[in-house]
Write a protein that binds this DNA or RNA. Structure first.
Length: 584
RNA sequence: CGGGGCGUAGCACAGCCUGGUAGUGCGCUCGGUUUGGGACCGAGAGGUCGAGUGUUCGAAUCACUCCGCCCCGACCA
């Protein structure tokens, strides 16, 4: 490709709206332009990158037996009604009507459509497993698109679905996908972690997220350098030092006045109060359930611990949890936040004809002589033995792990919590969709069984953006070789000198003949402009045809190392070939 | 959806408070000089000041409404 007629509108200044690095550089490098919030146009240079990413994805999907489909993005309402997701997806689904007034939506994901094909065509276990995938545009009406192409309303996703006759088959399909994902992201030059994650609204038994550590990400993950443990904060646990309680309180809890005490902190410094890890924190939540509506819940944690709301929702099997409003708290508990506790609340709720579930974090197990709110404004209880005094319905993991805590998986490891970007997510769906859509096959015994499914997603733009977040410097992007838009750029310092122009043309032809993707910078610009642009768009290698070329020498510049070496014209093609195509 | 910020030339911004000729830098076009890390000089082109309504003799500027974009939060396979 000749730069002189390849459309790369680079920008010298950074558009004011762009905050994250990948957004700034994609704009400056002339790769994307924004059409509306969360909707981007991909210009030729970025499309080359996306094509390379998609080709890697295809190769690895095909290698595990995946078969590529192309499904419609425009879906009729009916198929989404079958799984209940016409309603569940809520405002996140783009909806429209056709000329007859029939409801349609733009696909957010394709479990329904693929399962719809499966149920019509798959009849026997002998046809399984099937691994079906596509690379296609998805639409999600995000409440808040942000961070350039990282959170958008229209994006390209590779979505794959596996269909197996039983759980063992799903386990294998899942492992195959997982292994393929490792290859894909590695080939794309990304450093990533595989973390345990909550399955959330997708349902199913297990899920792994593929995460790239970057401040541009929105998820928090805990990782252990030592043993490789990694989990989304919504799943992460840690090992805590146990706390030695004084002897268990023998008497009933004792109420005492605590004027002015509103917080855990206040109670620490209050005379006769207690250290944070000797307090029981009591939080009132309202949980929403798919079947039986809303219900209040008490979540109990150690005073110095933070609740993780997703953990609470997962533990309850709730679709949603939210903090109770101050009025709700007072009505339920008889006191305001700051003086709440679990003692006696079960009975109080029952007396009011209501059910109140009490969920407590493992760290409170067997604790005694604790202090907590008395459900009377500005009063607390001391001498609380939790298992004697509070009827806990469910002991579970509720707390948010913090950096520096001990790894739950190895002896000496320490957890680090960092922001991460989700680039892939794989789910064991089980029979959630096959059951609701009646996708069954006959098994070996001639018995009709629901197909066991998995679903596996990769965000193509996010791979590109993550690569930039990970690989850039003050001058611009530094593409990993395998997804770079070009292998090498040939920079002719002055195209008005015929001998340089000719040398550049010859080198361009020779490099292309050697199987390389080459960008020839034949623009009539000053050398400085060309160097800056080349650095900005991040081609891994640059060959400079300039002063020394008349003596038979060119410069080979390594974008990542920012070092250049003189190479003779006769050797440069072989050198570039060796560097740029290594490992591919 | 709640909170905050911003809409003036392709990009970055000034002008607005205190109403009266729409400006600067980069980019773009033409001419000249220059030619290895975003050159210099000269001459140009380019804006219904986000939209609407109102106040006023007169609105980029004041008021109201709407739209759009960004950030924080809520939300999110």
């Amino acid at each position: 490709m000749r730069w002189s007629n390849f459309f790369i509108p680079t920008l010298r200044e950074v558009p004011a709206d762009a905050e994250v690095v990948s957004h700034r550089l994609l704009l400056r490098a002339g790769m994307v332009r924004q059409l509306a919030a969360g909707i981007y146009s991909y210009l030729p240079l970025s499309w080359l990158v996306m094509r390379r990413i998609m080709e890697i994805v295809r190769e690895e999907m095909d290698a595990i037996g995946g078969q590529e489909f192309f499904l419609p993005a425009l879906n009729p309402r009916e198929i989404w009604e079958e799984t209940g997701r016409w309603t569940v997806m809520g405002d996140n689904m783009f909806r429209l009507k056709d000329r007859k007034g029939a409801d349609l939506c733009l696909g957010m994901t394709h479990e329904e459509v693929f399962t719809g094909i499966a149920r019509h065509e798959l009849r026997s276990y002998k046809q399984l497993p099937q691994i079906w995938y596509q690379i296609q545009t998805k639409f999600r009406d995000e409440a808040r698109p942000k961070s350039g192409v990282l959170r958008v309303r229209q994006f390209i996703m590779k979505d794959a679905y596996s269909f197996d006759v039983d759980q063992a088959g799903l386990d294998k399909s899942f492992e195959d996908q997982r292994a393929a994902y490792v290859k894909i992201f590695t080939r794309c030059g990304l450093k990533f972690s595989i973390v345990e994650a909550s399955s959330g609204a997708m349902g199913g038994s297990a899920s792994n997220e593929f995460m790239v550590k970057t401040d541009a990400g929105e998820d928090l993950i805990a990782t252990c350098e030592r043993c490789g443990y990694a989990a989304n904060l919504e799943k992460a646990t840690s090992r805590l030092a146990s706390i030695a309680d004084q002897t268990a309180a023998t008497d009933a809890p004792e109420e005492f006045p605590t004027p002015g005490v509103r917080t855990i902190e206040d109670l620490i410094s209050f005379p006769g109060g207690a250290a944070a890890d000797r307090q029981i924190k009591t939080l009132v939540y309202v949980a929403t359930f798919e079947t039986d509506g809303q219900q209040p819940v008490l979540a109990l944690l150690r005073g110095d611990h933070q609740l993780h709301e997703t953990k609470l929702a997962d533990a309850l099997g709730a679709t949603e949890v939210r903090p109770a409003h101050p009025e709700e708290i007072r009505e339920l508990m008889g006191a305001g936040a700051g003086s709440l506790g679990g003692v006696g609340m079960k009975e109080r709720a029952k007396a009011a004809g209501r059910e109140l579930r009490i969920v407590a974090d493992h760290a409170l197990k067997n604790r005694s002589n604790m202090t907590t709110g008395a459900n009377k404004d500005e009063h607390h209880l001391r001498g609380v033995n939790i298992e004697r005094d509070i009827p806990v319905d469910l002991w579970t993991d509720l707390r948010t792990v913090q950096s520096g805590e001990a790894c739950p998986n190895c002896e000496a490891g320490v957890l680090e919590v960092s922001k991460s970007l989700e680039i892939g997510h794989i789910f064991k769906l089980g029979t959630k969709y096959s059951k609701s859509m009646n996708a069954t096959v006959l098994d070996q015994n001639g018995k009709e069984v629901p197909v066991v499914m998995g679903s596996y997603g990769i965000g193509v733009e996010r791979i590109m953006a993550a690569a930039i977040e990970l690989h850039h410097d003050a001058d611009g992007i530094i593409w990993p070789r395998q997804i770079a838009p070009f292998d090498v750029v040939v920079t002719v310092t002055n195209v008005k000198q015929p001998e340089l122009k000719d040398a550049g043309e010859r080198l361009y032809a020779d490099l292309r003949a050697a199987g390389l993707e080459v960008l020839l910078d034949d623009r009539d610009e000053r050398a400085g402009v060309k160097f800056k642009d080349a650095d900005l768009i991040g081609i891994p290698y640059r060959v400079t045809v300039g002063k020394k070329t008349t003596e038979g020498t060119v410069e080979l510049f390594d974008r990542a190392a920012k070092q250049s070496t003189d190479v003779s014209l006769s050797e440069v093609v072989a050198r570039v070939q060796q560097l740029a195509l290594a490992g591919s």
